[in-house]
C-alpha cells in the first residue's frame, strides 16, 4: 500500500513538474513576441473579458498556479504526518499525563 502511494505521489510530482517546465518554456518562447501586446479595446456594447492580458503574464500565472498546487500537495503531506502524530499522542494520553505530572500528585 505504501509503495502504491509513493508511486502516485511521484507521478503527481512528475506531472506538476512537467507542467511547470512546459509553462516556463512556453513563457520564454512567447516573451519577445508578446512583449508589446496591449489589451484590445472592447467595442461599444460588448463585454470586456477579464482575461485580456499578455500571453507572458497568462503563462506566468499558470506556472504560479502549478507551484501553488505543488506546495499544497507537499503541505498536505506534511499536515497528514502531523495529524497522525498528534492523534497518536492523543490516543496514548501523553498530553493529559504530562499535564497531570506538571500539577503534581494528588492535584
Amino acid at each position: 500500500m505504501n509503495g502504491r502511494r509513493r508511486v502516485i505521489a511521484a507521478a503527481a510530482i512528475f506531472v506538476l513538474g512537467a507542467l511547470v517546465a512546459a509553462g516556463l518554456l512556453e513563457a520564454r518562447v512567447q516573451a519577445p513576441a508578446q512583449a508589446s501586446v496591449k489589451p484590445a479595446a472592447a467595442a461599444p456594447g460588448q463585454e470586456k473579458p477579464a482575461a485580456v492580458r499578455p500571453a507572458r503574464e497568462r503563462m506566468a500565472v499558470y506556472v504560479v498556479l502549478a507551484w501553488v498546487w505543488l506546495s499544497i500537495a507537499v503541505l498536505l503531506g506534511f499536515l497528514r504526518m502531523r495529524i497522525r502524530e498528534a492523534d497518536r499522542v492523543h490516543r496514548m494520553g501523553l498530553v493529559r499525563a504530562a499535564e497531570r505530572s506538571l500539577k503534581g500528585p494528588g492535584l
Binding site: A42, Q46, E47, K48, P49, A50, A51, V61, Y62, L65
Partner: peptide
C-alpha cells in the same frame, strides 16, 4: 484563474 469574471459596457 480560469473563470475570471468579465465586465460589461
Amino acid at each position: 484563474v480560469f473563470a475570471a469574471p468579465g465586465l460589461g459596457p
